[in-house]
Every structure is written in C-alpha cells, then in structure tokens.
C-alpha cells in the first residue's frame, strides 16, 4: 500500500471540511473491508484517508417518526442481529447476515456497502424493496436520495467527492408487509453473489396487494423485475403464477455474462430464487 496522510475527524462537520478541501484525492474510511483491498491492489491511491470509524453518532439503529433509521457506520453484524431490522426489514437482516464472513461482518458497514456500489452488494436489493433512502450530506446541506437511484453502475454512485452518507432510513410498513432476500454464491461463506433476489410485499387474505422485486448481481446496477411485479399484483399466490412470475423475472434482468456465471445460468438462478421466496410465502398463508 502506498502511503497517505491520515485524519480522524471528531465530528461530521470536520469530516466534511476535510473531504471538501482535499477533493477527489481524499477517501473516506469506514470499516475498510473494501477500501483496504482496493488500496492494496493499487486501484485507489488517496493522498488523504479520512477515518470516520469513530464517529459514534453515525452508528446505531432506531425507530422514530414512522421510520427505521440506520447510521451508515452500523456493521453488518449489528444489522443482522437487530430485532428492529428483523421485525421491520427482514430482507435487510438476511442480506447483512450473508455478507462475507463473521470477520467481515464485524467490520464492514452499511454505508460502505452502499457507497462501494457493487452490483453484488448484499444490502442493496433488500434496501430497494424496503424503499430505503440515503441521506447525503455536504457542507452546503443534505438531501435524501432513494437507494434505487444512488447506484449508477459498478463502483459508480451519485455521491460527489465532498459528500458523506450520514443516514439511511426506510418507512415502517403497515401490517401485512413482509420481505425476504435470497442469495446464490458458489459457496455459503465468503462468496460474492452470482445472483440475488429481494422481494417485499403486502399481502391481504392471501392476495398480493403490492410487490417490489429487486435483483442483484445480474446487471451493472440493481434492477427491478417490473414485469414480474405486475404479473403478481392483485393475485393470490399459486403454483402456476409463481412459475410465470419467476420466469419473467429471469427474463427481465439484463444479466452480466462473466466468470461467475453466464447469462443463461443467471436467468435460471433468478427464477429459482424468486420462486423460493414466493413459495415460502404461499406455504405460510
């Protein structure tokens, strides 16, 4: 790793000043599980590393004003074990529990996962189906951006160099809402998703009132399976509908064709993963 100057800001404001002054050449450091690998590989050679890891005000999970609020420095371990997240956003707890390994989950953070913008990021499809938003702050103020619009492509986000993710929140859904995340990798631990599916739905007396389906790792960004969503809306879950919707989800994605899997393979996976989610919901009814 090449050398750099290292700063530990004591407040969000100080962090914002530091990244503003340094511009493109600064890098924020949270858990470091992406950044350190990237710096070791020479992908980034920041002149200044701004370690936000000890800004405790950016860590933690709470329920307030009809939202679940998550500090960006909250680790995957804490997300996976949070009763609030399990209750109101199960897909996110499941996504976080499938990141890397226990060691990675202990250090890796939600904000880092979002900002790193990998199409395979395990928290992104869950956040999309939970209709989560990200608070992006700079010295001139802050704005809320839907998670769905944060990522623009692999390693690309709408974040500007002088901006920091300062919060993530999703609405507490009404009764009848449920969400689930399924990931397929080459093995259970320490494998990046070949394909992943998150779904969030309102059901009333077995009927799907509203459903959101987000696919990970099959496209340069997270994509919605809109056709499958339409097929399912207003209907009761049954075998042939599940089969049609799942196939449609497989087709709807514009998959990556790479070393981890071909387009054909990924379409099959998406279909199987969505079917698994819908099947388990049907059996629960």
């Amino acid at each position: 790793m090449e050398t750099f100057r290292y700063s530990v800001p004591r407040s969000v404001e100080e962090a914002l000043h530091l990244i503003k002054e340094e511009g493109q050449a600064a890098k924020l450091l949270a858990g470091g599980t992406d950044l350190l690998v990237q710096m070791k590989e020479g992908l980034f050679r920041p002149s200044l590393v701004v370690d936000i890891g000890s800004l405790h005000q950016l860590r933690g999970i709470r329920k307030e004003e009809g939202f679940i609020w998550i500090g960006p420095l909250t680790t995957h371990h804490d997300l996976a074990h949070s009763a609030l997240i399990q209750r109101h956003g199960l897909a996110l707890a499941q996504g976080a529990s499938k990141v890397g390994s226990p060691q990675i989950r202990q250090r890796g953070t939600l904000g880092g996962n979002i900002a790193n913008a990998s199409p395979a990021a395990d928290t992104l499809p869950p956040l999309v189906v939970l209709e989560a938003e990200v608070q992006v702050s700079s010295l001139t103020g802050s704005r809320w951006v839907p998670v769905e619009s944060v990522m623009e492509g692999p390693s690309q986000t709408v974040l500007r160099p002088e901006e920091l993710i300062t919060a993530v929140r999703f609405p507490v859904q009404e009764k009848g809402f449920r969400s689930q995340y399924e990931k397929f990798g080459s093995r259970r631990a320490l494998s990046i998703a070949v394909a992943s599916v998150a779904a969030g739905a309102y059901q009333e007396k077995g009927c799907v009132k509203k459903i959101t389906i987000a696919l990970g790792s099959v496209s340069p960004s997270i994509v919605r399976a809109s056709q499958a969503e339409e097929l399912l809306t207003g209907k009761a879950l049954e075998q042939s509908l599940i089969a049609r919707a799942s196939t449609s989800a497989g087709q709807a994605c514009c998959p990556l064709d790479d070393v981890r899997g071909s387009i054909w393979y990924r379409r099959q996976l998406v279909a199987a993963l969505l079917a698994r989610i819908l099947q388990s919901w049907m059996n629960d009814e």
Binding site: L29, G32, T33, L36, V37, V49, P102, Q103, R107
Partner: peptide, 22 residues
C-alpha cells in the same frame, strides 16, 4: 485480502481480519 482468516485476531473480543485493518 480477508479471504482466508489466517490473520484473525480478537478486537474488543470480536474476530476481525487484521490484514484489513490499519
């Protein structure tokens, strides 16, 4: 790079990869 766990130490009682921490 965080893949093998050989560098694992306990940080405040929790396992972490010491190769991925400054």
């Amino acid at each position: 790079k965080g893949q093998c766990g050989a560098c694992t130490v306990l940080l405040d009682g929790k396992p972490v990869n010491s190769c991925l921490m400054l």
